[in-house]
Amino acid sequence: MTAARRATIEFLLDNLVWLMLIVVLIVFSLTVPHFFQFGIFTNILEQSTFVGVMAIGLAIVIISGNLDLSVESTAALSAMVTGLLFATQGIGLGLTLDPAWLLLPVSLGIAMLVGALIGFINGFFVVRVGMAAFIVTLASFIWVRGLVVAISGGRSAQRLPDAIRVVGTEDILGIPLLAWISIACFVIFSILMAKTPFGRYITLVGGNAEATYRAGINSNRILWSSFVVAGLLAGVAGWLLAIRTSGATANLGTGMLFNAFAAVVIGGISLKGGIGKLPGVYAGVLLLYSIHTAINLMGLPAHYTQVILGGLVLAAVLLDTLKLRLREKLL
């Protein structure tokens, strides 16, 4: 096999998820009524924002060789704290700042702080105490959601002020601001993972923690920071979610963990750690939400929606497995 041919095949396999996305979009455009229009594509971008941002953090933790099942609940907590402090109706306290634009950075900062704190706690138990990440983050998944119910009393906070809502209502070049934020997050963290020591260490730790430690890298600190980053990004996802829905309910974000995991796996991140790139995760998220949107537009009977969604996710993961086999065979 020539070097050029080999490079082409490698490029295609590395970006198979993007090809899958393009094929799916073409098929849906041809077969699903009303699918092929600019507004639907921007809807897909916008709707994939929350799981997308959440999936970046999840992917980083998985690349580092761990798991974080708490991102969904962490996002819900950040959303509820945002709603509780700044929403003007329901249980919202309607805090105001002068000038009003300060609400935007302050609310984002608080949401990130809440998320980072949960990530820090997860990291503490995994790295310092030596507990299994699966158990620690499963516990966090439960207690953090419980905390959401506790601080809200099961009630909802509604109507965020315009100074915050602007993120959910404005667009740039016809693409919603929310979508730009998720694109920016993917660009920043893709560069961070590919071009900085932090990103390389995360991948190294996930590939072989022992060897990384022997190479003089503080693998514990790297692992711990991966949990903090995942929590922080979940906090951002929750903040965006609160903006999208103009408030927060106690069950906000329920089910997003499944979508985030599916996107990460479809995106080519190995659950064993050490392998994967973030752009693929973004393609995975877009693929998932293309499917969601097509189902919405097809108006399928309610009972079959989950069956179809699960089946399509399985098909996507199956294709990814075939890709790995093909790579082994050809390269």
Binding site: N43, L241, L252
Partner: peptide
């Protein structure tokens, strides 16, 4: 009547349905 489910009673799922359907219908 166009009927669609908001899985798990989750609010953002309902929001997505409305966004998509406003474009389709």
């Amino acid at each position: 009547i166009i009927s669609l489910p908001a899985l798990q009673w989750e609010a953002s799922n309902a929001g997505s349905i409305v966004s998509d359907q406003l474009l389709a219908n």
